[in-house]
Design a protein around this nucleic acid. Structure first.
Lengths: 219, 219
DNA sequence: GGATGTGAATGTCTTCACAGCT
DNA sequence: AGCTGTGAAGACATTCACATCC
């Protein structure tokens, strides 16, 4: 197993989704060609991506859909469930809390925090919104793996320092700031404002080039 | 002006934000070194990024904060306002609608659509949620530039085809699918599920390598 | 003196093309 | 015969290092 780029991992995640779709359609086998068509990349790219992790295909045949789904789930670490805390119970926090896809993929939200006294104590499904003063205690008690940061940018770094201190090893950041985390902590950013500005740039400069993207990988 | 990568544009957008911060702090001039420190990249990278568009600095001095802000706003096409339609009035749509940063950057939401009869007719600030049947008509009337897709994945491609047909040239997609758009239409994806899976991968494989990211460009 | 702007060097990712299984 | 897996080539992005100019 070689070293693998961020973009490769992003594409694996896309392939997985497409394979599940194919499985629902009753398709048993796909070629790299077919996966490429569905994912908007090239057959060579698909094969390279997969071959970083092993030889999952059969020459002359292609890849077994169900086997490849299992492999990708294993590679991506999706066979277990992850314990997630949501910090920030504003509009974005609420939207994420309701995003059923997360739960389906094994990301279970075990705690919600906010600093607003009006929010603290609210019942969100089976959880109660807790004061941010309790972050350290609850993160430890609940053995949280991943924190989703959905607070204003001014508070983001402080929150990150605290959850990391309390043992969190993965951060999904929605605040439009560059966060700093110590080595060993994984950080991903979702920055809508930046994507919009990318669109603005593309639309302002039409004719000069063609654009697409993926949240790095969007898909 | 040379050809510029997606990642360069993403960083420009980040620099712009940081420069505004610096301006508020009363800082008049920054060096590439300083901007690099704040943005988590290198001084050479900062200079390369900027030099793709012109020579904005003074040797021996650095860059004038206010001048560079103006340049970046111009490069990114942020001097005008963009007319935006939001398709999908669910939780994500609601969160985006309330995201004040958009308006501040000149992205004005002029229409909101949904297919749910319970949502249609709701008053959202000064707008009324309209039936998706009206998409073509309203997009044309309101001269919408950009559509934000916040509908379930099963409906996403159909919606995109319709708004593009009606004249939209930029798409910000929140549905976890790979959308297809004709040449000349810019597409950006925000895919939270994919970012979470990237975290899952990173956490499952700790010790082998170090990770960070940016929505390829996040920050 | 000090920091920019940039060709050249390096590093990383993607595409090509084909040998090797099934 | 068909399609994978992969070394090698090519494209692209980042970093280096220095001449240039304020």
């Amino acid at each position: 197993m070689k070293k693998v780029s961020e973009s490769t991992v992003g594409r694996l995640s896309l392939y997985l989704r497409l394979l599940k779709e194919a499985e629902e359609q009753g398709i048993l086998t796909v070629s790299s060609e077919e996966l490429a068509r569905r994912s908007g990349t090239t057959a060579a790219q698909v094969r390279k991506d997969l071959s970083s992790f092993g030889s999952f295909g059969k020459r002359g045949l292609g890849y077994s859909v169900s086997d490849l789904i299992a492999e990708l789930r294993s590679i991506l670490g999706l066979e277990r469930t992850w314990r997630v805390a949501l910090v920030g119970a504003g509009r974005i926090g609420a939207a994420l809390f309701g995003y059923q896809d997360f739960r389906r993929q094994g990301f279970h939200i075990r705690a919600v925090f906010d600093s607003d006294p009006h929010k603290i104590g609210q019942q969100w499904d089976e959880l109660v919104v807790r004061s941010d003063a309790e972050i350290e205690k609850v993160v430890r008690e609940e053995e949280i793996d991943i924190a989703i940061i959905a607070v204003p940018e001014s508070a983001a770094q402080r929150v990150v320092d605290r959850v990391v201190q309390a043992g969190v090893r993965g951060i999904l950041n929605f605040a439009p700031v560059k966060l700093h985390v110590p080595p060993g902590v994984a950080l991903k950013n979702v920055n809508m404002a930046m994507e919009m500005e990318g669109l603005s740039y593309a639309l302002s400069n039409e004719g000069r080039s063609r654009r697409q993207n993926s949240t790095k990988e969007g898909e």
